[in-house]
């Protein structure tokens, strides 16, 4: 039971962070299919810093530096999307797909290069961070980490930014009707850059949280196993609203955790469903929800359409 709670909370944190990232990007008018790639890069940034930080670093410093590294890596990577989608008016779905493939390929090449340089016979794509990972754990021996708290704080911050600040409201205007926003003096291009970069920040952090969930080493060949896409489902299920995204993340995180630990429950074990069933469930639920509610979708109206100052 305890294990289920731990995993639910950690997966919820991951999904919530990444889905909030997607939420910012889409509210600014840019579809971010590349969340998966952003997560991988954030994870890579965090893992590399953990690898090279001296072992005796103070806990607080360690947390701050690693989190910043992951966020920075995510932001830098998200610029690939921002430049292509905003300046060059590229097809956002295509760019996102390319970013997902590039994320795994590039991080595998980087990690393998580092490993091979250290030891010529080591051709794995694995980074170990047993020691540094302990810095994030609140209660030793469990998976309760500071990330959960951080995710909660960022949820509240996201809500406040989106609905209570001038910046957030302007951001959303750019996703709903960029021409109108432009006519009252909002720089649509800048706002979209901000939206995509925030999604890079949150996505990168989400990637870091994911690779520290229950493990102390990560094989970058595996990417993040579809969590970016699951977060996309969370965002849609959460109707592009932070508070609803939190609920959706909790639900989906619960199912994901269940697929890991369901054998610990007698009544679930007796049902004799394969673990793949629990993995599948979140996707099926979001598909059904989409089918029912999509007629009056809450999606930002102008998302996916490149903004051209000259068009009417």
């Amino acid at each position: 039971m305890m294990l289920l709670l731990q995993y639910t909370l950690i997966f919820t944190s991951v999904l919530m962070l990444v889905a909030l990232g997607g939420c910012f990007s889409e509210h600014s008018g840019v579809i971010n299919i590349g969340l998966e790639g952003i997560m991988v890069f954030g994870a890579l940034g965090g893992a590399l810093v953990m690898k090279y930080m001296p072992q005796n670093t103070a806990t607080l410093v360690m947390i701050a530096v690693v989190v910043c590294a992951a966020m920075l890596a995510g932001i830098l990577y998200s610029l690939l999307l921002a430049v292509a989608a905003i300046n060059f008016k590229a097809d956002q779905t295509l760019v996102g797909t390319a970013m997902n493939l590039l994320g795994t390929a590039a991080s595998t090449v980087i990690v393998k290069a580092i490993n091979t340089a250290e030891n010529a016979s080591n051709t794995s794509s694995e980074i170990m961070y047993v020691g540094p990972k302990k810095a994030f754990i609140i209660v030793e021996g469990t998976e309760f980490s500071w990330f959960m708290l951080l995710a909660l704080v960022l949820l509240i911050v996201s809500y406040v930014i989106l609905y209570k600040t001038r910046f957030g409201l302007r951001l959303m205007a750019c996703g709903e009707h960029p021409q109108a926003a432009d006519s009252v003096g909002i720089n649509v291009y800048k706002m979209r850059y901000a939206g995509v970069m925030i999604s890079g920040l949150l996505g990168g952090l989400g990637g870091l949280v994911y690779i520290t969930a229950g493990v102390s080493a990560w094989k970058f060949e595996n990417g993040v196993a579809g969590f970016g896409f699951l977060a996309l489902a969370v965002m849609i299920f959460g109707a592009w609203k932070p508070q609803r995204i939190a609920v959706a993340a909790l639900l989906f995180g619960f199912f994901r955790a269940l697929s890991n630990v369901y054998t610990g429950f007698d009544f679930l074990k007796r049902l004799n469903l394969p673990s793949t069933f629990y993995n599948m469930l979140p996707y099926i639920i979001s598909l059904v929800v989409l089918a029912i509610f999509s007629k009056n979708s809450a999606a930002p109206k102008a998302e996916g359409i490149p903004y051209d100052k000259g068009s009417r």
């Binding site: 292509a84 060059f88 097809d91 295509l94 390319a98 590039l102 390929a105 595998t108 090449v109 393998k112």
Partner: peptide
């Protein structure tokens, strides 16, 4: 030569190519 590089270098190349394809219209 796997003592220096890894086979994923071609994945890297092809993913950069896809990324570049999004600039074709431009």
């Amino acid at each position: 030569n796997t003592n220096m590089y890894c086979a994923q270098i071609s994945d890297l190349i092809s993913s950069v190519i896809i990324y570049m394809c999004s600039f074709v219209l431009f």
